[in-house]
Amino acid sequence: MSKPLLEIKDLHVAIDGTEILHGIDLTINAGEVHAIMGTNGSGKSTLTKAIAGHPDYTVTSGDIVYEGKSILEAEPEDRACAGIFLAFQYPVEIPGVSNMYFLRAALNAQRKARGEAEASGAEFLALIKEKAKLMDIDAGLLNRSVNEGFSGGEKKRNEILQLAVLAPTLAVLDETDSGLDIDALKTVATGVNSLRSPERSFLLVTHYQRLLNHIQPDFVHVLLDGRIAKSGGKELALELEDKGYAWLEQTV
């Protein structure tokens, strides 16, 4: 548990010329689960987009080092193929592309980029069946267009399904818990927990402590106005739930 997988160093990120993140330092080792908590507008989503390489988010200074190499120049697809996965807060609907087709295209694009053999139809089918069962996703949803007409819970479960199929090394979950009822939250948490391994790290971004009752983090960081205001163990989340974000705003 000591090899750094992701090192974020004094990261400054701007959108349309406005700086949102003002120097983030964060190191995630292999196998660790980190939670980032914070209010709306604190920069949580910006951090996830910067890690995934969204073209609208400009890194103005600092670095993001993944597996020992800076990824600032890497395209989003290169980051994905290297094992970085972002579960979106608002999953995009893609009418006309079936979930199955999309997942297979994504899996094979990644395998191809890594020089691995592409999944055959039968191999893919077996994989998807297993993972869909894990996420309580029925065949109907697999054959429908990606996220089109899905409920909020279905969209989020579908994100975790993609996570399960693509099996990344670093999974970044952007408010996957928001808008979920307790049953959907438990399903998502069960899925995530089953994917935890000594080689796979998670960065969970959340507004609420609730998620962390079901997915136990190793570390909790509180983001406030584009900076990490406090870091600690999982007890920090409880303290935050108890005292509220205002408590931190006063102490900083």
């Binding site: 995934a52 697809e77 980051r79």
Partner: peptide, 15 residues
């Protein structure tokens, strides 16, 4: 947004 979503899953821009 849809283009970025697909790229974040490993498809290149053209794909």
């Amino acid at each position: 947004d849809a283009v970025f979503f697909l790229r974040s899953r490993g498809l290149d821009t053209r794909q």
